[in-house]
Design a protein around this nucleic acid. Sequence first.
DNA 1: GTTAGTGCAAACGTTTTGCACGCTA
DNA 2: TAGCGTGCAAAACGTTTGCACTAAC
Lengths: 151, 151
Amino acid sequence: MVQKISFEEARERLMKRNLKATPQRVVIYEALVNMNNHPTAEMIYEHIHSNNPSISLATVYKTLDTFVDSKLADKVLSDHGVTRYDGYTDTHNHLYCTNTEELIDYEDEELVKMLEQYFESKRISNFKIHDIRLQVLGEKIDVRQQVELSK
Amino acid sequence: MVQKISFEEARERLMKRNLKATPQRVVIYEALVNMNNHPTAEMIYEHIHSNNPSISLATVYKTLDTFVDSKLADKVLSDHGVTRYDGYTDTHNHLYCTNTEELIDYEDEELVKMLEQYFESKRISNFKIHDIRLQVLGEKIDVRQQVELSK
DNA sequence: GTTAGTGCAAACGTTTTGCACGCTA
DNA sequence: TAGCGTGCAAAACGTTTGCACTAAC
């Protein structure tokens, strides 16, 4: 599960990956993790802008690229032509709500293992697997709708 | 498996979906299906341009949108900021080669069923599933490389 | 001090738009 | 012939770039 992190914790994680802990990076990483909604670069920029008016959007983009290279973040489902980032890099999958464009972490070790085992047993010829990504597309049903449906 | 289609077959499929069978649409649809490499709009435009110089790129985009709406095509993995289209709409998954950017159809009924059953049994609360998409990221290993590796 | 990171503005590539015209059913 | 589809050029959008400046180690 994702936990909110402090400025200090963000700083430490950057240094652990041998990244210079510039204030910009720390702020951007902290935002990415704490927003916890798979934000776009623009969303992160907006989020930090009032407290950090001098951090440019270009820096947000460059920094997110750096994080992806350093395995501090992943790019995730980019339907709609916008790249979204995930600061939670443990192997997991996503539910994507086609109504709200919400991306919901779907953590299920059983599923991850099932897929790994499946492809191990299949031994696809001529293809070396690096990563298995699964997205479940659908729609979030809120409680009121559920009550409505069960009538 | 994907089979090459004729102009006539393309025409018929459009009409079956209640789409006006304009020459542009027929040509674009025929190209999408017969190219069979999950092309971008631009790739389709290039492919048809010499024989159909008057069909504009904007029309290719609009037409592909129409196909997606009418379930004649799917948008698929759009890493790298370019949308790719798939004219083969039967449920299947993809292998994505991170070296060549090739998208390879991975047809495996067993896998599709396994996933369907898995999520049926899980009954994720508050979420109505429309579609389960799986991409396997990795790299194609060509025969020479394989020989190299097995030495 | 050296190297890597930042901010700016301009450029880029992809996709969408508005509108006049053309063609399909 | 009514209404949808098309072509064009321009605009919009997300993202990247080059470069001079700055700051972290």
